[in-house]
Nucleic acid binder design. Structure first.
Lengths: 245, 245
DNA sequence: TTAAAATGTCTATTGATATAGACAACCATA
DNA sequence: TATGGTTGTCTATATCAATAGACATTTTAA
């Protein structure tokens, strides 16, 4: 552990940020579960091969995120540690998927717009380019913590009023049900990862350099007719996807 | 586009690296396919709200990676653009999954060891902790470019000699076949994303700050008996996963 | 009560990052 | 062949990132 060069210099990523990222991940993976504390600053400095002040910068950033809390004389305590699991199945649903992993889940409608389908959206929804679609911008939370930002498109003709339905039910499943679609299935999911954009960073309360897990998904009704195409961005250090075959 | 603050200051990630990451992604997404060139430095500087010299640092980094090539008087040409698609299905296979997306695929055995199963590995493989397993460290390439680094565990009793079989066949599927297992299926896949470690960075020829897509997978034989547990790390800007339900 | 161990604060110095401006070198084309 | 557009190079300056050392403050436990 100590000998391994875990951080690199002159790469455009400050050492304190590389170290903060590694510690955040170690906490997520339960590396410090025995003590509930991060190792002392001097020990970390030795492990990473940097000055103690550099480690302090990293810990300050994590404290800013609310992940750790330093107590003079005692050490640096771990405040929060979470990684939600999302099953991706033929019947993938956000709220049901979280299940008992959170006490309270919410879905907030940030924006709603009716627009003409781009070539890509039209292809996914089986429409002609230019046909009307409704776009919803939603933010999903688990226990008041933002988990994902999603952009969804629906055929406007079939799902007029889905924005209002989502706002009251706070869930796509409920909104569909209210509009006369009791059931739907996941057809395809594409998963990628990327750095967060500035807006996603703000909505998901992330720090720069943070990673997003991105799921592009298409849902159909039971006849196989596309009903929704969505691009969901998840804070990568808070979730994992599970695919059961 | 121009008004959007796409980069942030004083975050521990240098502006030139943030810009390099965004341009690399834009190239991957085909944003500059019309011209085959990156916009002029002065235009990019305006778009990102930074000095032209900062953009030049970003482009120099991308040139170092072999993604672009600057030509004095003409502009900055796009050299390489790639994003492989990996279908994750009940019959997920690396080589077959790449299909015609690459001319040549290889699988190199970096290391092989017989060890006692940890609690986690034992759980995944349905063994008792301490039972012997074989661990393979492999590097998979497509057209000479590294695509993924994988660590795999196999029950040692059943698959003695799998290291040698992999070395000759350069594929898990072939190695299984040689050891008398003609077919196997993917049981579960867990997908996460994280920053690359120093060793993965070296093996996958990545730059710091780079993102990994991580797939933890368990394969079984047709009777449902676990035959392999693996942790594969993919360079996130070179691949995407597709899940068909 | 004391000592050890931990975090907090301050000063100083060096190198990397970012901005700014000016001009050279090169390419395509009107 | 002249011109506009583009990348390449140089100098200068200000700020951030990282190291180094010293010492204060707080907690825990001997």
């Amino acid at each position: 552990m100590a000998g391994l060069k875990q951080v690199q210099r002159q790469t455009g990523v400050a050492l304190w940020r590389q170290i903060a990222d590694r510690i955040r991940e170690a906490i997520s993976n339960g590396a410090y579960d025995e003590t509930g504390m991060v190792p002392p600053e001097t020990v970390l400095a030795l492990q990473f091969g940097v000055n103690r002040h550099t480690v302090r910068s990293a810990l300050a950033a994590l404290a800013q995120e609310g992940i750790v809390r330093a107590v003079q004389g005692r050490g640096t305590l771990i405040e929060r540690k979470e990684r939600l699991n999302f099953p991706i199945t033929r019947r993938t649903r956000f709220t049901a998927g979280i299940g008992d992993q959170a006490r309270e889940t919410r879905g907030l409608l940030l924006d709603e717009a009716k627009e003409e389908a781009s070539a890509e959206i039209a292809r996914w929804l089986g429409l002609k380019p230019g046909e009307e679609v409704i776009r919803l911008e939603t933010l999903r939370q688990a226990d008041k913590r933002p988990v994902s930002r999603a952009t969804s498109w629906f055929p406007a003709k079939r799902f007029a009023g889905i924005g209002k339905a989502y706002r009251t039910g706070e869930s796509i499943t409920k909104a569909f049900a209210e509009l006369g679609l009791p059931d739907y299935v996941r057809a395809t999911t594409e998963v990628t990862a990327a750095h967060a954009s500035a807006v996603d960073m703000a909505d998901l309360e992330l720090t720069p350099g943070a990673i997003l897990l991105i799921a592009k998904a298409m849902n159909t009704d039971l006849e196989g007719v596309p009903v929704q195409y969505s691009i969901s961005r998840f804070a990568a250090d808070r979730v994992q996807f599970t695919i059961e075959n």
